[in-house]
C-alpha cells in the first residue's frame, strides 16, 4: 500500500531531518508512528503527502510514484494534519462537499457518509455553522470526517487524538480498525503510547531521522516485562 525507500531530507544542508528512511505498509495494516519531538515524524508524513519534497528517495502509494504521478497517488490517500488549518469563512458542510467534489464522491455516497461520520463524531449539529466558530476539537473532527469521506485506501493522520474528547477518540480508533478490516491501511503519528500499544498491528519508531524499529509490538519489546513506554524510552535514550 505504502512503500517509502531511502527518504532523505535536510532543511539546512547540515543536519539530516530524515536519513535513508525505508518503510513498507501492507494492505490492512494499522501502523503507529512514534518518536520523540523533532525526530522526523511530521517531516516524513509531509513528504509522503506531497506537502514538501525529499532530497532523495521514493514514495509509492498503491503502486503509484508520488514524484512522477502525483494526482493518481494523491487519490489513494487522505491526510489529517496536526494543525487544523483550513478555509475558515465557510461552513462545515461547504468544506465536506468541497472534499467530496475533489475526490469525486457521488451525491448519494457523500450524503450517507457525511451523516454517518458527523453523527458518530457528534458534529452533525454544527455542519451548517462557519468553521471559524468551531473549537479546536470540532475542527479536528471535521478534518477527520473530511478525510474519511473519500474512503481512500490509505488514511494518514498526524497526531489525530490531540484535541479530541474521549468519545470521539474512541470513535476514531474504531473507524481506523474498521478501515483496516476492509482492506485499507492507516498510518498515524502519536505521542499517546497506550493507543499504539492497544491498537496497532505494527509500530514504527523514529529517532533523529532514522527508523530505529519497525515491527510488531511483541517483537519490539524484546524483554516481555517492559511496557512500550519503557521500551521506547530505552531505545530513544540510547540513540
Amino acid at each position: 500500500m505504502l512503500k517509502i525507500t531511502e527518504l532523505t531530507k535536510s532543511y539546512d544542508k547540515k543536519n539530516k531531518a530524515l536519513d535513508n528512511l525505508t518503510l513498507e505498509i501492507k494492505k490492512g495494516e494499522l501502523i503507529g508512528f512514534i518518536g520523540p519531538n523533532g525526530a522526523g515524524k511530521t517531516t516524513t508524513l509531509k513528504i509522503i503527502t506531497g506537502i514538501i519534497t525529499a532530497d532523495k528517495g521514493i514514495v509509492e502509494i498503491d503502486g503509484n510514484n508520488l514524484a512522477t504521478n502525483a494526482i493518481a497517488t494523491k487519490k489513494s490517500f487522505t491526510f489529517v494534519p496536526d494543525h487544523p488549518e483550513i478555509y475558515e469563512s465557510i461552513t462545515g458542510i461547504d468544506y465536506l462537499n468541497f472534499i467530496a467534489d475533489i475526490y469525486d464522491v457521488s451525491v448519494e455516497d457523500r450524503q450517507e457518509r457525511i451523516q454517518r461520520y458527523s453523527s458518530q463524531f457528534q458534529l452533525d449539529h454544527a455542519l451548517g455553522k462557519k468553521i471559524n466558530t468551531y473549537s479546536h476539537g470540532m475542527k479536528q473532527k471535521l478534518l477527520i470526517t473530511a478525510a474519511l469521506l473519500p474512503e481512500a485506501p490509505l488514511f494518514i493522520l498526524d497526531e489525530p487524538h490531540v484535541g479530541l474528547d474521549p468519545h470521539s477518540s474512541r470513535v476514531l480508533k474504531n473507524l481506523m480498525l474498521e478501515h483496516c478490516r476492509k482492506g485499507g491501511s492507516v498510518l498515524f503519528s502519536t505521542h499517546v503510547l497506550e493507543v499504539v500499544e492497544n491498537l496497532c498491528h505494527k509500530i514504527a519508531i523514529i529517532n533523529k531521522g532514522n527508523l530505529i524499529a519497525f515491527d510488531t509490538l511483541d517483537n519490539i519489546k524484546q524483554n516481555k516485562d517492559l511496557s512500550l513506554e519503557e521500551t521506547f524510552l530505552e531505545m530513544t535514550d540510547h540513540e
Binding site: 503527502t49 506537502i51 494526482i71 493518481a72 497517488t73 494534519p81 488549518e85 478555509y87 472534499i99
Partner: peptide
C-alpha cells in the same frame, strides 16, 4: 494563505 498545506495534499493539479 492558510490552505497551502491542504492544497498540497489534494489530488489537484
Amino acid at each position: 494563505s492558510k490552505d497551502l498545506s491542504l492544497l498540497a495534499t489534494l489530488p489537484i493539479k
